[in-house]
């Protein structure tokens, strides 16, 4: 399997457990170099979070398990990057 280096997920999660706990739990996963969670929308009991994870040999399954343990549901995988080095999205003339 190719080396999964970056994952950007759109997640709907309950307000509690909060993202401070979740970000630390994700950061402790094997292969994770860094995580960022930002909140885009807050409802009465749930919030929409964008979770960005970078590292080496990331496991999507493990990440999914942690998010589900914290009551979250992955709505979409918004960006992925894999391989020997990290490639950023390229802006073309069509964009």
């Amino acid at each position: 399997m190719g080396n999964l280096r970056r994952l950007v997920l759109d997640v709907l999660k309950p307000l509690e457990p909060n993202i401070v706990e979740l970000v630390q739990r994700i950061a402790a996963l094997a292969g994770v170099d860094g995580v960022n969670i930002s909140i885009h929308e807050i409802d009465l009991k749930v919030e929409n979070a964008k979770i960005t994870v970078e590292g080496n040999e990331l496991s999507y399954e493990e990440l999914k398990e942690v998010i589900e343990l914290y009551g979250g549901a992955i709505h979409s995988i918004d960006e992925v990057a894999a391989g020997a080095r990290l490639i950023e999205d390229v802006i073309t003339a069509q964009d």
Partner: peptide, 17 residues
């Protein structure tokens, strides 16, 4: 159940469950 209604997932085996 209220949380499940808004999050649309089964919360029974999550931390809150």
């Amino acid at each position: 159940l209220e949380l499940e209604k808004v999050s649309l997932i089964d919360q029974s085996d999550t931390k809150i469950g």
